[in-house]
């Protein structure tokens, strides 16, 4: 797997996990970053004995250097599996991202889990955190051929399936649900580090025809409308999407995260975004 096809995420917070990994953690252990001095009795590893600190101690205690242990984290992909995510190749992008993210997490030594939510959270769209690539692969195969339907209201229960520890959470959705639902979701996920990826298809708004009659049916609500397409209406649709984008950015920023709008599985773009947010 070429390096370019993996996601490189860095954290700006400390992992509390006990197991060693690749991210800065709160545990002391075998690391390279100095953390603190400890009395020899508390940390009985004489190899890390700090002679200078021991000599300088007026109480003549032996001090041992403790190092920060790099820990692993839990990486989750929380995916919106509503009907609208089955439209126009979004499902393929979802699957590709699932595989890429899982490989990237396993590359770091992190555990990877998947939560898929449609009308509710179904057990067969749950993957508990683990290090098994085969399980992810099976899930991705099922997801590729699944018929997605229903709304995304199950997303709001996602917090119940997440660990009590802080985790890195990739939220992949097209956000075609009311902003109030989004605020509820973000409020329930506040303890986790959220990477929001908003997946819009250009055919939804930018690539609509300029002229002609267009009958459109909503995938989720089955409401049908006829549009008399003309340049002015096309402009208005594009403007409506731009406005929606601003609203979404506002909603995410209110909860301390910056959304990334993607139209296809653009790994370099996601990587650039991840580098920016770690800095």
């Amino acid at each position: 797997m070429p390096e370019a096809d993996l996601l490189h995420y860095r954290l700006h917070w400390l992992s509390g996990a006990v197991y060693p990994g690749a991210h800065p953690g709160r545990m002391s252990g075998a690391g390279l970053l100095f953390k603190q001095h400890q009395p020899l009795a508390a940390s009985n590893d004489p190899r890390r004995l700090d002679l200078r600190a021991s000599v300088l101690d007026p109480f003549e205690h032996f001090h041992v250097r403790a190092y920060r242990q790099p820990s692993r984290i839990d990486v989750y992909l929380l995916a919106d599996l509503s009907g609208s995510m089955g439209h126009a190749g979004k499902q393929k992008i979802l699957t590709a991202l699932l595989r890429t993210l899982a490989r990237s997490a396993f590359g770091y030594g992190d555990r990877f889990g998947f939560i898929g939510a449609s009308e509710s959270i179904e057990p067969h769209w749950l993957l508990p955190t683990g290090l098994h690539e085969a399980a992810v692969s099976r899930l991705a195969c099922r997801l590729e051929t699944a018929e997605l339907s229903g709304s995304a209201s199950g997303l709001r229960n996602a917090a119940a399936y997440l660990p009590a520890e802080r985790a890195l959470l990739f939220l992949l959705t097209d956000a075609h649900f009311p902003l109030a639902h989004l605020r509820d979701l973000l409020a329930s996920l506040q303890m986790h580090d959220i990477v929001p990826l908003i997946l819009w298809d250009a055919g939804e708004y930018r690539q609509l025809p300029s002229w002609g009659l267009l009958s459109v049916r909503d995938i989720e609500s089955s409401v049908s409308r006829t549009l008399v397409m003309r340049p002015s209406l096309r402009e208005r649709i594009i403007a409506a999407y731009a406005k929606r984008r601003q609203h979404l950015i506002g909603a995410f920023r209110a909860f301390g995260s910056e959304p990334l709008f993607i139209e296809h599985c653009d790994i370099p773009a996601i990587n650039r975004y991840l580098h920016q947010r770690a800095a």
Binding site: M85, E204, V216, D218, I219, R225
Partner: peptide, 23 residues
Amino acid sequence: KGMREHAHPGLMLLPPDPLSGLL
């Protein structure tokens, strides 16, 4: 309506259009 329907993921985002409704 006897027209080919195009699926759309987010119809609620499309602005209302009186001309289309009339037609």
